[in-house]
Design a binder for these strands. Sequence first.
RNA 1: GGCGGUAUCGUCUAGGGGACUAGGACGGAGCCCUCUCAAGGCUCAAACACGGGUUCGAAUCCCGUUACCGCUACCA
Length: 485
Amino acid sequence: MSALIPRLRFAPSPTGYLHVGGARTALFNWLFARKFGGQFLLRIEDTDRARSTEESTKAIFEGLEWLGLTWDEEVVYQGANLERHRADAQRLLDNGTAYRCFCTQAELAERRAAAEANGESFKYDRRCDRLPADEIARRVAEGMPFTVRFRVPDGSTSWNDLVHDEIEFPNKDIEDFIVLRTDGTPIYNLAVVSDDIAMEITTVMRGDDHISNTPKQIMLYRALEAGLPRFAHLPMIHGLDGKKLSKRHGATAVGDYQHLGILPGAMLNFLALLGWSPGNDIEVMSLDQMVELFDTNGLQKKAAIFDTKKLEWMNGQHLSLIPSDELMARVAPGLEAAGLVTVAELERRREWFVTLLDLLKVRARTIDDIVRQAVPYFSDTITYDVDSVAKQWKNRAATADILAKTREALEATTSWELGALEESLRVLAEQLGFGEKAGKVFQPLRVALTGLQASPGIFEVLLMLGRDRSLARIDAAVGYLRSAS
RNA sequence: GGCGGUAUCGUCUAGGGGACUAGGACGGAGCCCUCUCAAGGCUCAAACACGGGUUCGAAUCCCGUUACCGCUACCA
């Protein structure tokens, strides 16, 4: 295969839902692959049997699918590659870059504790590497358990990181690390390198918490005589307090935002801007535009704080951008779930619904906002908001009279359309002596119609409600006002 | 502790030696528009962590300090 075709992967461990940090890592990998005509692969790192769950794996798939971050080729399950991992460990033993270590975990823990007690930092002393060949053979023959340790060479290890440029580690600071456990299962660094080589990954893009793993992995690539990929270490995402994002920061799962009524396009756009900038003050972008503009030069080194305020704004922008007939499919299930209307019914009144969405989406930041605002257009009964009533229906008797007159004017309006409705109501306001202050008529009416003092334009509301429903609501309001006083 | 990484408005960022009285966006304040609420338009407040260099000149390059983050497991 050609080295010119980039191959990237997103390799989460299935120990929880898809986190916003993981989603962003996936996004950058995906953007890179799409931008340069490469492949984006998915690998589930399920070697930690105790913590991995099938449920988490499913959550990761669903999260990526919701975001639209589709992957190429079959999903790779790391756990399925155990034999190759073992074989690679054996190769290391065979070519002399690793050795068997018979020290037990208890011994190691003891020595580590002793070192710490003396204020020294512990580093494996290579005692097993000094064992004579016949002693090793004897122990192996005896069936004595051992781990495989990689022998860290002298010198230093460095690489040119796509986001950090040159990073260098003196090898003396890295101890001979274990690559294969006594039970024959691989340690993370070996499994990753083995799989990345097998998957022919050309660019490893991951969180910068892996920077210190990188020199070890580079040594493993060399020992396994494989070509090195390019590395790109992305900054972390922190919570409002500057600490690593965790559950106590509230919603951190991609799915949480899906349920909060965020559009996947907005989520992606927001995530992309956390740690990347296309320059030129560009902010609101579609996925296609992001692919077009993506460039590792715009990648940030600094950790970003996840601020949902901007996410909401971003979602509002995307809500405005997305055509209402496309938005329909995302809002309809919410309305049905709220028990307001069935999806089938909405489909029948498609044109009307699209118009309603046009009206509601400009004043909404999330899909949930739209659902909430849509209530008056579906439910048969209206609940009057206390603040709105207190403010707009202050004088009950007078308000009832105004509403009664409004009803008359509307009933007399020959055609139920925007211009005629406006004409009628403005004339009425004039007649009632409100002059320019037509709001004196509109506001009480708004409360009668929607129960709220904030809504789309009053004529639009009348139009969406239709003549019969509008008049009935005014009747109900007048009745309410007169009986309650 | 050791090693590594990072450091521009409260937040996301532009900036890669002179174009910087440091630009944009979110959030905040105010004004305009207006039947309300949004949206939109306009205005304002708000930052180069600190200290040394290098240079005619530094937000930009180098060094140190400080702060924060990460790694330091037979976790991933």
